[in-house]
Design a protein around this nucleic acid. Structure first.
Lengths: 298, 298
DNA sequence: GGCTCTTGATAAGTATTGCTTATCAGGAAA
DNA sequence: TTTCCTGATAAGCAATACTTATCAAGAGCC
């Protein structure tokens, strides 16, 4: 019913009108002059009216009919609209624009992401990023409910997350943290049994020991501190020792020491978690690629 | 540089997204399913991103990627914009809409146009019409300067209007107008010489006698009244007689009589005047055709 | 006047695009 | 498993867009 106006065709029309000539328009369109003639003719047929004055009669420059004059601004508007969208989509596909949401466990969020993100946004100034940090379970939950494009966490109970894809990135070894003047502080490595002799403060990451031979330690533990700030304060006060993954160890503290736990060697595998059956937005996809590229050489 | 998004292609995309399936979209587009597949694939290539989730994997209904979700409303907007313009142009080409300006000599404007225009606009309710009435010279001037789409007038000094096209429509005979009780009032026809015995009031239409054998009458004339209302008042007061074309004769006056002038027979040819080298707008073109059609049978 | 340069239109052939039919692969439901 | 959906893919055909070559007609020039 309605004619289908092709963008290229409209562009030809506008060029002929504005450059006042078929030859000039042809050059601009990187086409030959007959192509433009035919294109305009086809457009006129579709609309059912001439756009330019009879052109076989006089050699004066191509001139619009009243109808053509009315059509010109409309055509220009539609072309502009098209170009705006095409540009927008291209930018978005090249992840130069858009909105990206991710969730991460705090250790990575504070230790790795600031550097990664600042370098990533350097070549995408119009990209908006929202980053949520929370514990691994909450991160997985946000991924599950599509509140974020992807998450950075370790995968707990892998069987429950069949619908998620996990890309391991960092191996985070669990160690023991104590005050510099603690008897254990000068050890190079530790056996879990050694810890039984010291007061152990457990924390949110302690469940990493579950299922390892060091599990009995958890039951020995008298204190449980979920908050990291409080935990550090306890340790600095010499209340006891705790286990932490290396990434979660507060390096900025000058009074605490990290000693690797070698028996058992408990490793938290942190990586990118996303839904298997959902595509990432171009921006998210780009960030994942970026993170992977960062980690490959290192 | 920028990809050229074809309207048909966007339409396919929107249909697949909204009908949640390639088959359904194909049916709506009156195409086969592979055609839609290829169309979408091409669009995805142009944009550089997938619009739908991987479709070979699961048979669930076609589902948009985040990118596709962002693109959908934009595509719909662009399609709507296109359709609006296409519709607008089609209506305008069919002269259902637009703005039409014409100028006419007062006799036709008051005698013929009210009926013609009211019937013409009956099938074009959204058409705006502006009508200017003035004397023939002014009408020709407005045509000349493209202040109107076309004019209705008689062509004076044809040599000066080589750039105009004249389509004769009405033959308007000049006659003598006097009061019912005037000595001439009962004549069936008149010879110009008879008028010399009466007081003649000349008017704007009197120059029609120029170049005829009745020309000496103009010099005899003591009064010149340009305004029609005043002229009628003078005549009704019995001040004298005048010459007028039949169309300019005020039929509604019950006290005045029109007597045809037979020697010489002066005829004013009234018709449509337009610039030869300019196209008419669709609406103007339609009105001209309409007027011509009205006059052909009559 | 005739010559040349411009304008855009036109014809015929080719290249590209879009569409078709026929077929295939994979998941869901029987 | 078999069947019935989904959409993807291949090969061939048809419509469209573009090319080169040529033409007609007005303007400027001698």
């Amino acid at each position: 019913m309605l004619p289908e106006l092709k963008i290229a065709q409209l562009r030809h029309f506008v060029w002929v009108a504005e450059l006042k000539g078929f030859h000039a328009a042809a050059e601009k369109a990187h086409r030959t002059q007959p192509a433009i003639s035919l294109s305009i003719k086809d457009l006129e047929n579709k609309l059912g009216e001439s756009l330019f004055e009879k052109r076989n009669a006089k050699s004066a420059n191509a001139e619009l009919t009243p109808f053509g004059q009315h059509f010109l601004p409309q055509a220009k508007e539609l072309i502009a609209h098209h170009d705006r969208i095409a540009q927008d989509m291209t930018l978005m596909a090249e992840h130069k624009t858009g909105h990206l949401r991710l969730a991460s466990v705090p250790s990575i969020a504070s230790r790795m992401l600031p550097d990664i993100l600042s370098r990533f946004v350097a070549h995408a100034p119009d990209l908006h990023i929202s980053c949520f940090d929370d514990n691994a379970a909450a991160v997985l939950d946000m991924v599950e409910h599509q509140q974020v494009d992807f998450g950075i966490a370790s995968l707990l109970q892998t069987d429950e997350h069949a619908n998620k894809t996990f890309i391991p990135l960092w191996h985070d070894h669990v160690g023991v943290v104590c005050r510099n003047d603690h008897p254990l502080a000068n050890s190079d490595s530790l056996h879990w049994a050694t810890l039984r002799e010291h007061r152990l403060i457990s924390n949110g990451t302690s469940r990493l020991l579950e299922g390892t031979e060091a599990a009995p330690l958890l039951e020995d533990s008298q204190f449980y501190i979920s908050n990291m700030i409080s935990l550090v304060a306890m340790l600095e006060a010499g209340l006891g020792v705790t286990t932490l993954p290396w990434f979660a160890f507060p390096r900025e503290s000058s009074t605490l020491t990290f000693i690797p736990l070698t028996t058992p060697e408990v490793v938290r595998r942190i990586g990118i978690v996303r839904l298997s059956n959902k595509s990432l937005s171009p921006a998210a996809q780009a960030l994942v690629q970026f993170i992977l590229a960062q980690n490959e050489p290192g």
